[in-house]
Design a protein around this nucleic acid. Sequence first.
DNA 1: GCATCGTTTCTATAATTGTTGAATAGTTGT
DNA 2: ACAACTATTCAACAATTATAGAAACGATGC
Lengths: 119, 119
Amino acid sequence: METKAATSIFESLSSSWRLEAFRLLVKQGPEGMVAGDIASALDIAPSSLSFHLKALTHAGMVTVEQEGRFQRYRANIPLMLDLIAYLTEECCSGNPGKCVDLRAASSCADALLPPISPK
Amino acid sequence: METKAATSIFESLSSSWRLEAFRLLVKQGPEGMVAGDIASALDIAPSSLSFHLKALTHAGMVTVEQEGRFQRYRANIPLMLDLIAYLTEECCSGNPGKCVDLRAASSCADALLPPISPK
DNA sequence: GCATCGTTTCTATAATTGTTGAATAGTTGT
DNA sequence: ACAACTATTCAACAATTATAGAAACGATGC
């Protein structure tokens, strides 16, 4: 992943509306949600939601598919995982020992970083 | 993690300067880097870097410690991992089957999400 | 104490982002 | 073709964010 793509994604998650919408879609899984239902769930003006969904779509974090007169949105989980990989890659320059203490301090601990191994 | 804290973090990673600085610090590990070295590495004006490091510090993604006349910055790895946990929690409402295909599509695959288990 | 070094803060300006309501466009059912 | 429904686009305005250079601040060494 390039820096530009990553900043675009982070920017897309940097507003409350957009983060809440994305998390809602992550929770919803492959089923996704149509725009109107998202607007209802978040209690946001349709035009405002459209603005934010467009930002998420442009960043690639959500996909949209027409479904009759509805627009169905879905979270792009693979991209989310790629972003996580981008953020954590080269952690401590791949030096095993340096990371362990830092990992232990997280509430989610080891599950979220690739297994410790020499570079 | 609350939404507000998460958006603050995403916002702090949404500029190229800040993302590059943070990744540099992640790579550097516990050793961290002093402000001047970061500025040199990124080729950015000191006052501009200070502005961006302040944003990262305010979001909690980096810590700063005085070291003689230098300021040493370090990435907050545990918070990074907490952020990842926040982003991935409740994925597909904890419904095992729905996630597998999505996970497989990522270049980093299964390592990055908590093990699949019923809610 | 004074000059120097590393860094931050201040000031002004430029650029970007978010909000709202009205208008527009596409889809469906009659 | 028409009216109803879903959603996006547009336009104007308000608010926020980024930049660069100058000034200020704290720490160090002579």
